[in-house]
């Protein structure tokens, strides 16, 4: 090109069809963006729990091992799970308070399975700052958290102390007469 000898810029002047020229660049950039998004997913997903963690995502348990009036603590998703076999007195006390002044209102029936009110399954983590509440202590005979004094009733509902919510009922179901699958 003659003008290049004179020292003018080497950038080419506009071609007769700039639209066609731009299309290919837009297509290439779009394809690049798509590729980047596709390759980004594995790098994001690798932070999700790995397969060995997910294998422990659900557990099965035979609740008939829990004597009446007692609680067994099982490890579920690396956290304590309370399996409590309630006495009729405890159930009655819980139902009686269904419409009391509760910080986190919930009926006892909504926290157990129909016909299986004697089995209360809860995540054993205080909803305040995460300590493990102690079984059977406190004014309502439910649980008492020694860290900051939260007290739960026999339905696991928060009654006194700093915790904002009731003890969490996990996703579970009865797979047999006395076997549950949690998670």
């Amino acid at each position: 090109m003659a003008d290049s000898v004179a020292g003018a810029s080497a950038v080419p002047h506009d071609t007769p069809d700039p639209g066609r020229r731009n299309f290919i660049h837009i297509a290439a950039i779009t394809a690049a963006a798509g590729g980047v998004a596709a390759i980004a997913w594995p790098f994001i997903d690798q932070w999700n729990p790995a397969a060995d963690t997910m294998a422990l995502a659900s557990i099965e348990y035979d609740v008939s091992k829990v004597p009446l009036g007692q609680q067994v603590t099982v490890l579920y998703r690396k956290q304590p799970l309370f399996v409590r076999h309630r006495t009729p007195k405890e159930i009655a006390e819980a139902v009686a308070d269904d419409h009391a002044d509760l910080r986190d209102p919930a009926t006892d029936a909504s926290r157990v399975k129909p016909g299986k009110a004697e089995w209360l399954i809860l995540i054993g983590v205080c909803t305040h700052l995460g300590c493990t509440p102690l079984f059977g202590q406190g004014e309502w005979g439910g649980w008492f958290c020694p860290c900051h004094g939260s007290q739960y009733d026999t339905s696991g509902r928060i009654r006194k102390g700093p915790a904002p919510k009731n003890l969490v009922v996990p996703d579970y179901s009865f797979t047999g007469a006395t076997t549950i699958k949690v998670g």
Binding site: W41, P42, F43, D45, Q46, A50, A51, D52, T53
Partner: peptide
Amino acid sequence: VLAMHYDPSGGGAFDSIQHIMRDVNYGWLI
């Protein structure tokens, strides 16, 4: 990213590579 899953201890290193290859999502790819 691999260093987030790798265990540099003598007892755990080889196992952690298998953990990456088999358990970590897309670990084999990375």
